[in-house]
Simulated assay, not measured.
Amino acid sequence: MAEAVQQALMRHGVMLDAEALASASRIAGHVAAALPFLPPAQRLAMSSFKGEWTDLASDFFRAMTDKVASDGSAMSDRALERSPPKSETGRPAARPIAERAVELQSMLIEDWAGEVAGSTYLEEKLRIPRSTLHRWQRRGEVVALRKGGRKHVFPLAQFIDGRPVPGIGDVLSAIANPRLAWFWLSRPSPELDGRVPIEMLREDMVEDVIGAARALS
Rank of each mutant, 00 (worst) to 15 (best):
P36M: 11
E115H: 09
V102N: 00
M200K: 02
A144Q: 02
M200P: 02
L156R: 13
S76L: 14
R138W: 01
S58Q: 14
F154D: 03
W136H: 07
E203I: 03
S106A: 15
D55S: 15
E203Q: 15
P197D: 08
Q7S: 12
F61L: 15
R11Y: 00
R139C: 04
T54L: 14
M75C: 05
Y121A: 03
A74K: 13
A8S: 10
L126M: 11
T65L: 14
S83G: 02
V206G: 02
R62T: 11
E199I: 07
Q6H: 05
H134P: 00
R100K: 09
G90W: 11
I160V: 15
G149L: 14
T89E: 08
V196R: 08
L180P: 02
V196K: 07
D204W: 10
V5Q: 05
S173V: 01
G140F: 03
S189W: 06
V142H: 03
A144Y: 05
W136F: 08
S25C: 05
P129I: 03
D204V: 09
P129H: 08
S48F: 02
L192Q: 06
R78S: 09
L38P: 01
R11Q: 14
S76W: 00
M75E: 07
A157Q: 10
A94P: 07
R11N: 09
A69Q: 13
I168K: 04
A18R: 13
K125Q: 14
G167P: 05
R26C: 07
R146W: 00
S23T: 11
Q6Y: 01
A93D: 09
A2D: 07
K67W: 00
P166T: 08
A176D: 08
E3A: 15
L56H: 13
R26P: 00
D77L: 10
A174H: 06
G13K: 06
L56C: 02
K147W: 03
E3V: 12
I168G: 07
D66L: 13
G148A: 11
M107V: 14
P40G: 12
W112H: 06
S73M: 13
F154M: 08
V209M: 05
V143M: 04
S73H: 11
E3Y: 00
E207I: 03
S217A: 15
V68H: 06
S25F: 01
A45S: 13
V196Q: 06
A117R: 12
L126I: 02
S83F: 14
A117P: 01
